[in-house]
């Protein structure tokens, strides 16, 4: 694990350095003197060769210090840390919503294959991904915040309010739903197609032949085996939980990790980007582990040597 981790940090550092764009240039305001610019470059350590910077950074990391953001001067741990909870709220809710919708609809579509319900589900799922997220967000705002006035346009809390649970929930509904649209669509398709796959397998046919009720066949035999790709998907989405959703966060003024990432990229804020990459790497590893464990639970045949 450690060599992989080191490899990722080396690679990220290299990629960042080779990506065009100068972090100091991004922080210059018109009329700033050349001397002020040089001071900044020195303070960021950018006057030194890459390998020196990397070794220094690694040394600090070993002591638990992720460095300071170029653009704000705040510690990276603080900049990244303050986004964890809002990000989890948004992506967690969206993920939950998409599974809650995706699994039953997918099963239904598979059971009633090539029926009106199936077609409707198909067209709706693809409608959700045929328009870009920023546009879906606007559609959501237009309908629910402007025309119906049921929900606030954006933000996580009412200005001047104390940000209570209900208030938070109220602000969460729209962005989480917009984010869940695409997710639910994808899950529906995976569930539907692997259900169909599994329903053709011998053991399901045997179960049917035994005279087992259709519901039982579905639930006990088909569904469980159809979950493999869904589990993989969930494993893949664990890092995405914290990676956040760039566009949705921007449209809805949500202080999430996606926005931080894009801000950091736009300003070439290397320390913040390295911090984000490290967290992502750890989460990817955790996601894999959980998915592999879940396979074994869903399908006892899977074992590891």
């Amino acid at each position: 694990m450690v060599p992989i981790f080191l490899g990722i940090t080396v690679l990220s550092y290299l990629i960042l350095t080779l990506t065009p764009g100068d972090p100091v240039q991004m922080l210059i305001s018109p009329g700033q003197s050349a001397e002020d610019v040089a001071i900044k470059r020195r303070a960021f350590g950018l006057d030194q060769p890459v390998y020196v910077r990397y070794v220094k950074w690694l040394g600090e990391l070993a002591r638990g210090n992720l460095g300071y953001s170029f653009s704000t001067g705040a510690p990276v741990t603080k900049r990244v840390g303050e986004r964890i909870v809002p990000t989890l709220k948004l992506t967690g809710a969206a993920l939950l919503l998409s599974y809650l919708i995706g699994i039953p609809v997918g099963v239904l579509a598979a059971a009633k294959r090539y029926s009106a319900i199936d077609y409707l589900a198909t067209v709706l799922t693809f409608l959700g991904i045929s328009l870009p997220t920023f546009f879906l967000g606007l559609v959501g705002i237009y309908i629910f915040a402007l025309r119906l006035q049921w929900l606030p346009v954006s933000g996580t809390m009412t200005l001047g309010g104390d940000g209570g649970f209900l208030d938070g929930l109220h602000h969460l509904v729209l962005p989480a739903s917009v984010l869940a649209v695409a997710g639910a669509g994808i899950i529906t398709r995976y569930v539907r197609s692997s259900m169909l796959e599994v329903m053709g397998q011998d053991y399901v046919r045997t179960a049917r032949a035994k005279g087992l009720a259709e519901v039982l066949v579905m639930r006990r035999h088909a569904l469980r085996n159809a979950l493999i790709p869904v589990i993989t998907l969930a494993g893949l989405q664990i890092p995405a939980l914290l990676a956040g959703a760039v566009i949705t966060e921007q449209v809805f003024e949500w202080p999430g990790m996606g926005r931080l990432t894009i801000e950091a990229i736009n300003q070439r804020d290397y320390p913040v980007l390295m911090g984000i990459t490290i967290i992502a790497a750890v989460l990817v590893a955790i996601g894999n582990l959980l998915a592999d464990m879940a396979y074994a639970v869903a399908d006892p045949r899977i074992h590891y040597e």
Binding site: L27, G31, Q32, S33, E35, D36, I39, G73
Partner: peptide, 8 residues
């Protein structure tokens, strides 16, 4: 030694 943009 100060990081600033007000020098000018």
């Amino acid at each position: 030694k100060t990081e600033t943009n007000r020098g000018a």
